[in-house]
Design a protein around this nucleic acid. Sequence first.
DNA 1: CAAGTGACAAAAG
DNA 2: CCTTTTGCCACTT
Length: 115
Amino acid sequence: MSCATPDADEAPLAERIIAVVRAIPAGSVSSYGVVARRAGLARGARLAARVLSRNEDPTLPWHRVVRADGRIAFPVGSAAHDEQARRLQAEGVRLVRGRVAMPHRQDDLDAAIWG
DNA sequence: CAAGTGACAAAAG
DNA sequence: CCTTTTGCCACTT
């Protein structure tokens, strides 16, 4: 049975982004741009963001994805922002004045995540 | 088909 | 620290 429906492929791109986000280890964080890059999109930061916004999987560690400058994408004071910050701290991620402590000189693992 | 939109990014002032 | 501008990609109207 060949590919019957014209849209049988759906969106492997979104699935890829989901897979990348799911691959982020607990206690570590990544940025939308990096996630998109690992998913095959050189400049798909917005795509990654859109995919996460549309995602409904509660098992997806969406909270491990932040902005490139280490800040949470949601507005400060928002419920989503609070929840994300809470989850990150619960995993051991340090937040300094609302932004994630950058992996300045951490283990190679973190470096691998970011680069 | 044109314009608007978004959990973005980097540069410039 | 701030705002503005440009680039980017897929989707929506």
